[in-house]
Nucleic acid binder design. Sequence first.
DNA 1: TCTAATAGTTAATTTCGCTTAAATATAAAA
DNA 2: TTTTATATTTAAGCGAAATTAACTATTAGA
Lengths: 152, 152
Amino acid sequence: MQVEDEFTETLRIFMETFMRRSMRNFLLYAKEKGFSMSQIGALFHIYRGSGGVTDIGDDLGVTSAAASQMLERLVQQGFILRSESPQDRRVKQIILTDKGRQIIRESMVAREGWLEGLETTLSEAEKEKITGAIKLLIDKATQLDERQPIAK
Amino acid sequence: MQVEDEFTETLRIFMETFMRRSMRNFLLYAKEKGFSMSQIGALFHIYRGSGGVTDIGDDLGVTSAAASQMLERLVQQGFILRSESPQDRRVKQIILTDKGRQIIRESMVAREGWLEGLETTLSEAEKEKITGAIKLLIDKATQLDERQPIAK
DNA sequence: TCTAATAGTTAATTTCGCTTAAATATAAAA
DNA sequence: TTTTATATTTAAGCGAAATTAACTATTAGA
C-alpha cells in the first residue's frame, strides 16, 4: 500500500470510529435535553459568532421565517438574547446567555467525554506522539478553512 | 501545560474542527437525499450489523412502532430487506441492499471527502507521522469498544 | 400445558418544525 | 424623495415522524 493510500484510509477509519461514538453521544444529549437538530445547530452557530436571523437560517438550510420561530423558542427558554444591531437596525444581534453557553459546554462533554477513557490507556510517550501529529492536522485543516471557508 | 492536559485539549480542538466540517457535510447530504436523521441513523445501524426492529428503535431513541414504520419506508424505497430470523421467528433480520450500501458509501464520502484536500498539503514525512499516531489512536479506541461496547 | 413476556405491525392521533404569504421597519438605490 | 431591496416577524396550515393502543405471532417460564 502506498503512503498516500494508507494515509487517507487510516484517516477514514479514524473518522468512522470517532464520529460514531461522538455523533451518538451528541445526538442522545440533544434528544435528552429536548433540542431539535436545528436548535442545537443554531446554538453552535451563535457560539461561533452569529450574523443575523437569516444567516442562521441559511446555515441550517431553512427559511428565515423558520429561523425566527426557532430563535423565539430559544429566547423563551432563556438560552439566547436578541437585540437590535446598531449598525443596521433591521438586523438582530444574537448572543448566548450563560444558560446557553452551559448547553454548549455540556454537549461538548457529551461528545468528547469518552476520550478521557482513551487517555488512561496511553503512555506519556504515546500521548506526546499523538499530540504532535494531531496538532499538525489541526494546523493544516485551519489553513484549508482560510482558503475555502465553511461559512459562505 | 502538562502533557495530559495538552493531550486532551488537543484532541478536543481536533474533534471540534473535524466534527464541524464532517457533521455539516453529512447533514447536507442527508437533507439533499431526503433522509431524516432517524433513517440515516438506521441505515448506519444496519450497516454495522443490526439486531431486530426494536433494537434499531432503541438505538435511535424511538419506540419500536416508530422504528417499524420507518423501516417499512426504507423497504419500499429499496434500501433494506427484512426477513424472518430462523433462530427466533418473532425477530426480523434486516440487511442493506446494494442501493442501501451505496447510500452508506456516498454519505461517508460526503462526510470525509474534504479530507482529501488536506492530504495535498502534507509532505510524505508528515503523512507517515500522522498515520502512525492515528493508527495508535484507532487501536486504543477499538480496545475501549471491547471493554465497554457501544451497543448495549 | 397454560400463562406471561417478547417482537413486530397497524391504525388513529398528536406533535412539531417547516413553508408560504402577508406585514412592518429599516436601509440602499434611483 | 420615491422606489426598491433587505431583515425580521407573525399567522395559517401542511406534512413527516413520533406516540399510544390494540392486535398477531412466537417463545420462554411456571
